[in-house]
Amino acid sequence: MYDALKAAPKNDVCPLCGQRTVSTLDHYLAQTLHPTLIVVPINLVPACAECNKNKLDYQPESEVEQGFHPYFENFDDDQWLYANVVEGSPAAIRFFVSAPPGWSATKASRAIRHFERFRLAGLYASHAGVELNNIRFSLERIAERGSLEDVRLFLLDRAESARRAYLNSWQTATYQALARSDWFCDGGFIF
C-alpha cells in the first residue's frame, strides 16, 4: 500500500511543492497528534523529503491555518501563484500569492500558508534562476533578429504552454512575469 501511495503522483513529483521527487509519505494530520490515523491511506500524502521536513508535526489550530490537501481539494480552480521580475544583473524572479477575486478569505489564507509552510518562494526562485540562464541564448538570438515584441511573444508562448500543463507552476508565473516586463524584454536578460 505504501509503495502504491508513493507512486501515485504524476511524474513522481511531490504534490506539495510541485518540484522535487517523491521519496516519502507525509502524514497530512500529524502522527504525533493523531496516532489513530498513522496508517490510514487518506492521511498519507506522497511527498519529497524536504516538504516532509518543512511540515514536521505542524498542526493548524483553525481551517485558516491549514495548507492544501493535494488530493481532496481543488486549489487550481484559478491562478493564485504569480511572480515579478527583479531588475538586476542577472535578473531574478520573486514569487508571491495573490488570491483570485472569487476566493473566500479562508481559502486565500490557506494558499498563503501552504506557500510559506513549504518555503516555495525560495525553491521557485532558484529554479527560475536556472531557467533564466537556460533561455538567455535563445532570447539573445531573438533580440538580434527582431524586436522587444518578438522577445515578448516568445515568452508569452512559453507562459501559455506552461499554463496549459499546470496553472500554478513556477514556470507559468515566471514566463508571465518575464513577458510583462518591458525592461526584461528590452535586454534585461543580458548580463
Rank of each mutant, 00 (worst) to 15 (best):
A121N: 10
L44G: 04
A111E: 04
E63Q: 13
N84E: 10
C14H: 02
P15S: 04
A49Y: 10
S104Y: 08
Y28V: 07
L33W: 10
K107W: 05
I38T: 14
Y28G: 00
F68Q: 13
V39P: 00
S104A: 04
V64I: 13
T24Q: 07
L25Q: 07
T32A: 12
V13E: 01
E87A: 10
N74D: 15
A83V: 08
P90C: 02
D26S: 03
G102M: 12
C48V: 02
G67D: 05
G18H: 03
Y28R: 06
S98M: 13
C17H: 10
A7V: 06
S109G: 11
N84H: 13
A125E: 12
N74A: 11
L16S: 03
S98E: 15
R136Y: 07
V13R: 00
V64E: 14
L132C: 01
L123K: 12
S109D: 06
P41Y: 08
H34R: 09
E116S: 13
L33T: 13
N52V: 02
R119I: 02
A7W: 02
T24M: 02
Y71T: 06
V85F: 12
C48N: 01
A108H: 04
P15C: 00
G102R: 12
S109F: 03
V64W: 12
S62T: 14
G129P: 07
L5D: 00
L120V: 07
G88N: 13
Y58D: 12
R117I: 01
A99G: 04
K10V: 09
L56M: 11
D26L: 00
P60V: 07
I38S: 10
E131S: 12
I42C: 11
Q31K: 15
G129A: 05
T21P: 00
A143N: 11
E50W: 02
I112Q: 15
H127W: 11
G67Y: 10
S138T: 14
H27Q: 05
A99V: 01
T21L: 00
T32E: 10
Y71Q: 09
L44W: 00
H127Y: 13
T36Q: 09
D78F: 07
R141M: 14
F115M: 04
S89H: 14
A92I: 03
N54T: 04
V130D: 15
A83L: 06
N54K: 06
G122H: 13
H69P: 02
P70M: 05
H127A: 09
R141D: 11
W103S: 08
L37G: 03
S104Q: 07
D26N: 08
A91S: 12
V13P: 00
P35T: 09
S138D: 14
F75L: 07
E65C: 06
E73D: 08
C14G: 00
D57K: 12
C14Q: 01
E65D: 15
Y71R: 11
V39H: 13
V86F: 08
N74V: 09
V45E: 03
K6V: 01
Q66R: 14
E50N: 09
Y28A: 03
R119V: 02
F72Y: 15
P70V: 03
T21S: 03
S89D: 13
A47Y: 05
F96E: 13
I135A: 06
S62D: 14
A143I: 07
H69R: 07
R119D: 07
F72P: 00
P100I: 06
G67C: 11
E131Q: 10
R94H: 14
Y28D: 01
